[in-house]
C-alpha cells in the first residue's frame, strides 16, 4: 500500500458516501444517472468475485464490502425507494447499458492476463469502470447545469482514478515485475474521459460561478 493508492481509495469512498448522503438526506436523485449507478454495481460485482476466495487484507475485504453495499444501495434507492424514485429523470437518462457492456465483455475475452472466468470478469470490470461514467456525463450535458453535490461526486470519482495512476507509477518504480498494461491503459482512458469535466468544473470553481456544461 502506498499513499497514492490510499488517497485514491479514500477519494473513491468519499465519492460514494457523498452520493449516498445526498440521496438519503434530501431524498432526491435529481441529476444522477441510474444507468451509471447500475454499471458501477456491475463493476464491483464482477471485480470482487474473489472476495471470499482470495484474502488480501482486512482493509481490502472491508473496502470491497463497502463498495458493494454502497453501489447496490444507491441502485436500490433510485429504483425502489418510493420518494427518491420520483425524482429520477428516466426520460433524460436513456443511455443503453448494452452499448457499453457488450464491447467491454468482448474486449475482455480477447485482452486479458489469463483466460479464466475470474480473470476475464476482472478485466471486464476494469473496462466497464472506464466507461461507466458516460451515461452520467451525457445526462449532465442534457440537463446542462448540475448541483454541487453531483459535481463533487463526479470530481471525486475522476480524482480517485487519477490518484491510482500515480500509484501505478510509484509501484512500477518500486516493485520489480509490477507491470499491468491492461489496468494502466484502462485507468488512463477513464481519467481522460473526466478531463473535459474537470476543465469546466475547475473553471466554474475558479470563477465562482455555477457549473454550466456546454451543450
Amino acid at each position: 500500500m502506498n499513499i497514492f493508492r490510499l488517497a485514491g481509495d479514500m477519494t473513491h469512498l468519499m465519492s460514494v458516501i457523498v452520493l449516498l448522503l445526498k440521496i438519503h438526506t434530501i431524498k432526491s436523485c435529481a441529476g444522477i444517472s441510474l444507468k451509471t449507478q447500475e454499471l458501477y454495481a456491475l463493476v464491483f460485482a464482477t471485480r470482487y468475485l474473489d472476495i471470499f476466495t482470495d484474502f488480501i487484507s482486512l482493509y481490502n475485504t472491508i473496502m470491497k464490502l463497502i463498495f458493494l453495499a454502497s453501489s447496490f444501495s444507491i441502485v436500490w434507492y433510485m429504483r425502489q425507494h418510493k420518494i427518491v424514485r420520483r425524482s429520477y429523470d428516466k426520460d433524460q437518462d436513456t443511455f443503453r447499458h448494452l452499448f457499453l457492456i457488450l464491447p467491454c465483455l468482448l474486449l475482455a475475452l480477447f485482452i486479458n492476463e489469463k483466460f479464466t472466468f475470474k480473470e476475464v470478469m476482472w478485466t471486464f470490470s476494469l473496462f466497464l469502470e472506464a466507461v461507466a461514467i458516460l451515461p452520467q456525463l451525457v445526462l449532465l450535458q442534457r440537463t446542462r447545469n448540475i448541483d454541487n453535490l453531483t459535481g463533487q461526486y463526479v470530481f471525486l470519482l475522476g480524482a480517485y482514478r487519477a490518484l491510482y495512476i500515480l500509484n501505478w507509477i510509484y509501484r512500477y518504480f518500486t516493485e520489480p515485475h509490477y507491470v499491468h498494461w491492461i489496468t494502466w491503459i484502462s485507468g488512463l482512458v477513464q481519467t481522460l474521459l473526466y478531463a473535459d469535466f474537470f476543465y469546466y468544473y475547475f473553471n466554474s470553481w475558479k470563477n465562482n460561478v455555477k457549473l454550466q456544461l456546454p451543450a
Partner: peptide, 10 residues
Amino acid sequence: DTETEPHDEL
C-alpha cells in the same frame, strides 16, 4: 503455469 497472483488493488 503460475496461478495469476490475486489482484491486490480495489
